[in-house]
Amino acid sequence: MAVFVCAGCEGELSVPVSRVALPAHAHGEGGDRFLPPVLQPGSYAVDPEPSGPPFRSWSGIGAREAAARGVYAPVPALSFAPPGRILLAPGDTRGTVLIPERCDGCCASDGRLGPNLACARCGREVGTRIDDCHHWQAVWFEPDAVRELPVEGPTRPAGDGWSVPGLPPVEPQGWWSAQWRAAVGTTLADLLAASGGEPLDLPEGLLTETFGHTLAGVLPCGTPARRVALAGPGLVPPIPPAAPVSPVASPDIALVPRHPWTGAVWQPSDGSVPVPLDAEVWTYLAFPQPASPTRLPEGVERDDPLPLRPHRLFTPDRWLLLHRLARLPTVREPWLRAIYDRLAADGPF
C-alpha cells in the first residue's frame, strides 16, 4: 500500500491506498446526473497518458507531432500535461483545500481550469477534484506535485484477482449502465482493429445487443465472417486427458478480461486474437446471473412493478471509442481511418 504526500512539505494527502488498473470509465461521462466515485475506496490508479490541461488543438500540433505522442488520427485537442496523473476517490484524500476560483462547472467542478486542490499545509497546488454532474467523482493528483510513500497495510483479498462480481448492464433506474457504455466503447476500438475490416459473427444475446448495433453500422455483412466469442478464466471447464477433443472450433477473436489490479490482458491458449474488456462487464457476460428462484405461494398475489428497462438501444460511449481508436497505430490503415472519420462525424449511432 501507499500514501501520497505533498512534494513540497511532505504533508499527507491521502489515506493508505492500493494500486489498481485504470478503469475504462476514468475519463467517461454518464449523462446529466450525479455519478459515484470512479474508484472504490482504498484504491488508486495511474494514467499512463497525458490528461488534463494544458490542451493544444489538432491544427496547432500536426500529424507528425501527434504521432510522436501516440495519437494517429485527428482529435479536437491533445493534452500536453505530463503523463502519470494519479486517480483517487475523493473520500480517500486528506490535507487538501479547494481553490475556489478554479471550481468551475455546471453544478460543481469539472476541472477545466486546472488544479483546484492545494496542500493545506503549504498551499502548493497538488491536484484537481472533479464532482460536477455527468462526471464520475474523482481526484487527480499531479505527478510532479506529490510523492508516493510505501506503507504497511492489509494485503489484497485472497485469490489471483481474476474473480470479480459481474456488473449488471442496466441500472435500477432503468437506464443503461454508464460503466458498461464506457467499457464497451473502449473495447469496440480494439475489436474493430482486430476485425481487419471483415464481417464479424457475434453470439446472440447481450453481447450482440451491446456490441452488434455499432459493428453492423461500420463493418460489411456476409460470409465468411470472423467469429467472436468470450474466453477467460473459469469459462471453459478443463477437458479430462481421456476425453475427445471438443468439436467446437476456436474463435478468431476472443473477448477476454483485463485484470482489475494490474491491467494485464488474459491470454487465450488457442491462438485466437485477444481483445480486452473490463473484468466486471466480462464476468457478467460470461456468467450471467440466473433468475431468482423465489416463488410465491399458491394464491398469493403481488403488485410489485417489474424491473425498469431501457427505452432505447444500447449506445457505447462515443468519446471513449474515438479516444482509444485514435491511439491505435492501425487507425492509419485506410479502411479503419474511414471508419474513424465516419464515427467522428456522428455516424451510425
Rank of each mutant, 00 (worst) to 15 (best):
residue 194 A to G: 01
residue 158 A to Q: 09
residue 177 S to P: 03
residue 284 Y to E: 12
residue 299 G to T: 07
residue 137 Q to I: 06
residue 55 F to D: 12
residue 221 C to N: 15
residue 39 L to F: 03
residue 229 A to D: 07
residue 259 H to V: 01
residue 20 V to S: 03
residue 30 G to M: 01
residue 55 F to L: 13
residue 237 P to R: 06
residue 163 S to Y: 08
residue 185 G to N: 02
residue 318 R to V: 11
residue 289 Q to M: 05
residue 151 V to R: 02
residue 182 A to K: 05
residue 74 P to A: 11
residue 20 V to L: 05
residue 202 L to H: 03
residue 102 R to H: 14
residue 275 V to W: 02
residue 229 A to P: 03
residue 38 V to T: 06
residue 85 R to A: 13
residue 230 L to Y: 00
residue 65 E to D: 13
residue 171 E to L: 05
residue 189 A to D: 06
residue 134 H to W: 13
residue 313 L to F: 12
residue 131 D to K: 04
residue 97 V to P: 12
residue 264 A to M: 10
residue 5 V to S: 13
residue 11 G to R: 09
residue 326 A to V: 08
residue 90 P to R: 05
residue 257 P to K: 01
residue 103 C to R: 13
residue 213 H to C: 14
residue 213 H to S: 15
residue 288 P to R: 01
residue 318 R to S: 11
residue 222 G to M: 04
residue 78 L to I: 15
residue 90 P to V: 08
residue 37 P to Y: 04
residue 258 R to S: 10
residue 295 R to Y: 13
residue 11 G to V: 09
residue 49 E to V: 11
residue 258 R to Q: 12
residue 28 G to S: 09
residue 312 R to S: 14
residue 187 T to G: 11
residue 203 P to Q: 07
residue 253 I to L: 10
residue 154 P to I: 11
residue 166 G to E: 00
residue 195 S to M: 10
residue 65 E to M: 10
residue 88 L to M: 09
residue 190 D to E: 14
residue 307 P to R: 07
residue 205 G to N: 01
residue 258 R to W: 03
residue 344 A to E: 09
residue 147 R to K: 12
